[in-house]
Design a protein around this nucleic acid. Structure first.
Length: 586
RNA sequence: GCCAACGUAGCUCAGUGGUAGAGCAGCUCAUUCGUAAUGAGCAGGCCGUGAGUUCAAUCCUCACCGUUGGCUCCA
């Protein structure tokens, strides 16, 4: 191929297309290698994905890491041979005859209209061919860099009722350098892993004694509390009242709320005196009870009840992951009770607060999803139609970009979810607004309207961070553990250069502490260099060094964790500087 | 829950069918130092748990628990 355009000169769309075709082509080469080494393997599908591709095989035995090496070796041969990818078309029925021994391919073909043509692709002169949708490179040699990454079980067609296939994940790039860069990126991301940083920074840990339930050390607790305190500030501004509610409730409550019907498998139950109680996985039923504690008037609405109560969800084993998916959690949860007419305004009011909070914390990139009714839903279809229409219209008339996800709603209502990516690019649902017509119905909630009639309020479930554990996990990865001053568990470390400076440094520490700054004095036996290093590793924003010169002039040598040395300043100046920066959240 | 891998000192990790080792952290002593590791010494382990094979198991087998990567589910 002469005149071939260089990859870097392609438009972004063409680059993506190039990568997709190459990755899909690599999947073909993989499929051939697997077929050679494991003749009994049945091929299913092998699409390109972000950063790579996968191929699902039906095999009697799962692949071992050793198999992967052999397969990779086999693939190398095909790529060296640099054979041509050739597509050929057949009728669907002809194709059915060819793949008749492979029930997965048969199932795929059966989903295609009988009069449609289908393609087979070969890259080894017909010795091996695979039914596929097409989109390949010209020759196997066009695959410039590839690597098999991992294996995993995956259900056929993503349904756990179906057979489990063996998936091989791989990556493929237009050049060795691009692949190197990618592998480097993964390595860098692993360094930011919040589980690793949680240990290194003494924030939290896990123990099998309480699976998937973090133990927060003092520094991690500071972070959680800082996040909570900030929300509480916003709650004052945005008109929320905080409430506290019990931890366990008689099962009657969960029957009434519908949780027993739709959420029981995720709940913990305890039996006391032959009565059964459920540990709360959500706050909403308790808040419905608070609403009912008085007869309500339209004048009280909207009513916004916030609750930082601890929730427990019995997540299936195998789905939990560090802080991002836990069994014991706190949410910045609140329920808004309002009239039907107030829905739009309330949701917008909430989104405004969310925007403010995310911006302050430094999350300016997030993804929005509108999730519609799931299979396991309670409430009438009229209620769902109406609720879905309201959220759709609201997003349509907003500036937000969003995607629609059918079947992803909560069991009691549709929702708008906010997703934030972690270090590895996996995105996590954090913020959420959920519209619920069902809870008011089930608890028979009412308010006296202006005209004296009794009306049914609407409930909006909403959270900005969502689960704080998860939010913190994602936040740690975003910041690589280097928290801005207002969040940092230790905001400054005072470093005496020698023992004789300890007293002075303790005085400095005491002054900072009195000003409300989280400060530590490192009066250990170490050399100053090591004290700096320790503070640096702990990602402490400021290091305040004091030796003879500083005591003499009554100042502090200020070093930032970015390695910068600021002009010497007095303790008072330092306090002022820090307090301002904390107040500005900068 | 499903598939796979892993589980050794507080942490990160070596290691072997004959009851264990390093670095860091910890403790003690010496050192008092000017912006990312001062030195020496000491202590620290039911080798995840339970069963089995074996003269002998941290190592082999099985089960369980937990973690990780996926699948499914989900904030």
């Amino acid at each position: 191929m002469a005149n071939r355009v260089k990859f870097k000169d392609l438009s972004p769309e063409d680059q993506q297309d190039h990568r997709d075709r190459m990755r899909h082509s690599t999947a073909h080469v993989l499929a051939e290698a697997v077929t050679k080494l494991f003749p009994e393997a049945q091929l299913t599908i092998g699409p390109p994905i972000e950063d790579g591709f996968y191929y699902d095989f039906a095999v009697p035995e799962p692949f071992t890491p050793d198999d992967l090496k052999k397969i990779e070796l086999e693939m190398r041969g095909s790529i060296r041979a640099n054979t041509e990818f050739v597509e050929r078309e057949t009728s669907r029925d002809e194709a059915l005859e060819i793949v008749k021994d492979n029930l997965y391919k048969v199932e795929i073909l059966e989903g295609i209209p009988a009069d449609e043509r289908v393609t087979f692709c070969s890259h080894s002169d017909g010795a091996f061919e695979d039914l596929c949708r097409g989109g390949h490179m010209e020759r196997t040699g066009d695959i410039k860099a590839y690597k098999l990454m991992s294996t995993a079980g995956a259900y056929w067609r993503g349904d756990e009722k179906n057979a489990m296939l063996q998936r091989i994940y791989g990556t493929a790039w237009e050049s060795r350098d691009a692949q190197k860069e990618y592998l480097k990126r993964i390595e860098e991301a692993e360094k930011r892993d919040h589980r690793k940083l949680g240990r290194q920074l003494d924030l939290f840990f896990f123990d099998p004694i309480a699976p998937a339930s973090p133990f927060f050390l003092p520094k991690g607790t500071v972070l959680m509390n800082t996040l909570i305190d900030y929300v509480k500030e916003l709650y004052v501004k945005y008109g929320y009242d905080e409430v506290m509610t019990p931890q366990i409730f008689n099962t009657d409550l969960w029957k009434k709320s519908g949780h027993l019907e739709a959420y029981a498998e995720n709940m913990f139950f305890v039996n006391v005196d032959e009565r059964e109680f459920g540990v709360k996985p959500m706050n909403c039923p308790a808040h419905a009870m608070l609403y009912q504690a008085n007869s309500r008037s339209y004048r009280e609405l909207p009513m916004r009840y916030a609750d930082f109560g601890r929730l427990h969800r019995n997540e299936r084993s195998g789905v939990t992951a560090g802080l991002t998916r836990v069994r014991s959690m706190v949410q910045d949860d609140a329920h808004i009770f309002c009239t039907f007419d107030q829905i739009g305004e309330e949701i917008n009011w909430f989104l405004e607060m969310l925007k403010e909070a995310y911006h302050a914390i430094g999350f300016d990139e997030y993804r929005i999803e509108l999730s519609l009714r799931p299979d396991k839903a309670i409430g009438s279809s009229e209620m769902w139609d109406q609720a879905e229409a309201i959220l759709t219209e609201l997003l349509e008339s907003s500036d937000y970009d969003y995607t629609v996800e059918a079947g992803e709603g909560a069991f009691y209502g549709p929702k708008i979810d906010i997703f934030i990516p972690d270090a590895l690019g996996r995105s996590w649902q954090c913020g959420t607004v959920q519209l619920d017509f069902s809870l008011p119905e089930r608890f028979d909630l009412e308010y006296a309207a202006e005209d004296g009639t009794r009306q049914r309020p609407v409930v909006i479930h909403r959270a900005m961070y969502g689960t704080l554990e998860r939010f913190l996990g994602v936040l740690i990865e975003h910041l690589a553990g280097a928290f801005p001053l207002w969040m940092a568990p230790v905001q400054a470390v005072v470093v005496p250069i020698a023992d004789r400076h300890n007293d002075f440094c303790h005085e400095v520490g005491a002054k900072l502490k009195a000003a409300g700054i989280r400060v530590e004095v490192d009066d250990s036996n170490d050399r100053m260099n090591n004290k700096i290093r320790q503070a640096q590793l702990q990602k402490v924003p400021y290091m305040l060094v004091a030796g003879d010169r500083e005591i003499e002039s009554g100042t502090l040598a200020v070093r930032t964790r970015t390695g910068e040395n600021l002009d010497p300043m007095s303790v008072d100046e330092a306090v002022e500087k820090f307090l301002k920066q904390i107040a500005d959240k900068s």
